[in-house]
Design a protein around this nucleic acid. Sequence first.
DNA 1: GCAATAACTCACCCGAAAGTGAGCCTTTAT
DNA 2: ATAAAGGCTCACTTTCGGGTGAGTTATTGC
Lengths: 120, 120
Amino acid sequence: MSSQLKPGTSNACNIIALSLACEVNDVLRDISPRWKMQVLHRIAAGTNQFSSLKVAFPSLSDQILGKRLAELVSDKLIDKNIIEVKAPKRIHYFITDKGLELLKIIDDLHKWGLKWRDLL
Amino acid sequence: MSSQLKPGTSNACNIIALSLACEVNDVLRDISPRWKMQVLHRIAAGTNQFSSLKVAFPSLSDQILGKRLAELVSDKLIDKNIIEVKAPKRIHYFITDKGLELLKIIDDLHKWGLKWRDLL
DNA sequence: GCAATAACTCACCCGAAAGTGAGCCTTTAT
DNA sequence: ATAAAGGCTCACTTTCGGGTGAGTTATTGC
């Protein structure tokens, strides 16, 4: 993922320390940005255009949606087909195998959350 | 989890929108704080005191460790036995069933990360 | 000749999370 | 009488990420 970290800061050092300690942190960082897994889930469900995703998430702004889509693509969780290059552009997004496998685990996480919600 | 959100901000509104859209966001928010799953994993592995956790994670400060432990307890992912009330206090942490089940999923996430790391 | 459409990108702001310095409590050892 | 041990908490500063406003591109319809 594209993270803007000022090198040399204690913050950046700790990120490095975390990664060395355990690779799962990279994964957690990649999946935790707001709306990201939501959008991935939607794309898996067949909502495959920028504009229809906007409709699906009315409180998500264009800018953040664009950012999340770019992240998902660079993470190779989704891929895109360029249908029309000239404006108005048309692009179709679709989930990759990597993304599908991730979604299964996210779904386990979801079930876990429901199971223990308000329990004991 | 204890989150300090100023009500009425667009930020807070979006958190609410996210929660309504899908409960998995709450879970993602709970597991993504830095060091948290790391610490949970360590406790599961038997490192059960504040001071020994400090040794296990040299670049993690007392303050953040304290915060993470408090979060883990309030999430009921760990519990604590108070061995000695008077200073120097002695407290043993241990993982709960809820925490154990979560760790299994985190481990899946870890495996997923390794599998797809540097793969196409 | 103006607006709308689709899919973005840039520059900026602000709140939240991460990190830091210091202090607290009581007992035991020096 | 002072320091260390063990487990924190408070107040403060810095960094990061989410959110917002505006602008871009080229085509089609009014």
